[in-house]
């Protein structure tokens, strides 16, 4: 009486990749454009090893700057033997955080791997094992990247504080504002992370006995609803921050001082 429950007979009947008539491909195309450009830019910036400091502003791509060879040393952990760009010492943290982020995973699985390119659009690859095997099994260490990016965040806030300290004394320029917004957006992105939400209280089965954790979890849950938004604006802003510092240090533009 029944068909084989694990079988599929329509696949052959309608052999098209999708019956969708809307422009489903716009979303993955935009992601490829934006995310792709950012990765290319970030790699170029990291390889450049120049124009990342324009006193008192330090580009977030080089913060914290951990080598003695830095234009602005945050903490000289690595001696002169480190002759690569100091960006490589730290960029793996935000890079890893974003690469294993639950939102970005969706974005690049869909757009770069076509798995699936859109909802109800056929997968590009013939076979699929998801995140059950290496390398995608590594996505599970996301929460450690979260902890590490909190450390980086602390430095970025410190950079924002230092951005008030000019040679002439206490002051504030457009760059100060840029760094402050950068730290704030990255904080929102980090705290809205799904792992953070789990660690803040999502792991509990009963909230009633843990009111503090419950209200923390509720706050994180509200932030979490906008995780994708924070992911994109913090990404774009961090890029623009670097561009700003770079242009200043190259002398192409001048920083506007408020006071």
């Amino acid at each position: 009486m029944k068909n084989e429950p694990f079988g599929n007979q329509r696949g052959e009947v309608i052999p098209r990749a999708t019956l969708r008539t809307d422009a489903w491909w716009i979303e993955p195309a935009l992601v490829i454009l934006l995310l792709g450009s950012f990765v290319v830019y970030a790699t170029w910036v990291a390889l450049q090893n120049a124009h990342y400091y324009a006193a008192p502003y330090l580009s977030p791509f080089y913060s914290p700057c951990l080598a003695t060879s830095c234009q602005h040393v945050t903490w000289p952990l690595f001696g002169s033997w480190w002759n690569l760009s100091p960006a490589f010492l730290i960029l793996w943290v935000p890079g890893g955080f974003r690469a294993t982020c639950y939102y970005y995973r969706k974005a690049y699985y869909r757009s770069f791997l076509g798995s699936p390119p859109g909802c109800a659009v056929r997968d590009v690859a013939k076979s699929y094992t998801g995140e059950t095997r290496f390398p995608f099994l590594l996505q599970n260490i996301h929460r450690y990247f979260f902890w590490l990016s909190l450390v980086i965040l602390a430095f970025l806030w410190w950079d924002a504080v230092l951005a008030f300290r000019f040679k002439s004394g206490f002051g504030m320029g457009v760059g100060t504002l840029v760094l402050l917004v950068n730290a704030a957006l990255l904080t929102l992105y980090s705290l809205s992370c799904h792992s953070c939400r789990h660690l803040c209280g999502g792991h509990l089965d009963a909230f009633h006995t843990r009111p503090a954790k419950y209200s923390l979890w509720r706050t994180m849950s509200r932030l979490n609803e906008r995780h994708m938004l924070f992911a994109w604006i913090s990404l774009i802003w961090v890029g623009l921050t670097d561009v700003y510092v770079r242009l200043l240090s190259m002398g192409i533009i001048r920083d506007l001082r408020f006071f």
Binding site: Y102, R105, K106, R110, C119, G130, T132, R143, H194
Partner: peptide, 29 residues
Amino acid sequence: GFCNITKCCTEVCPEHIHITDNAIIPLKE
């Protein structure tokens, strides 16, 4: 582990349940 959280389930849910964010990801965590 097969789920790669591409969220189509959430997109099509007529009850607007946040399947990925509230069920699958917490379970993964």
